[in-house]
Amino acid sequence: MAKIKGTIVVDTERCKGCEVCVASCPCDVLALAPAVNGKGYHYAHMANPDNCTGCASCAIICPDTCITVYRQKFE
């Protein structure tokens, strides 16, 4: 059965750690990283990358457009 898998790239320096993406992810992929960026924000990162389906919910809601999303079909 074909599998759809996704992944995201977070522009960690632009991210302000608002956590809105974390709340909007349907597959519980995201969390705020323990590390902080140059401005001292805990940026978003994929805590459970395998769950990501590439639905882009996080990307479209991000107020600072920090997230780029990729998706691939695996046979």
Binding site: G6, T68, V69, Y70
Partner: peptide
């Protein structure tokens, strides 16, 4: 997932 142009969603 390869981060290629084809796979780019957003």
């Amino acid at each position: 997932v390869e981060k290629t142009k084809e796979n780019l969603v957003y």
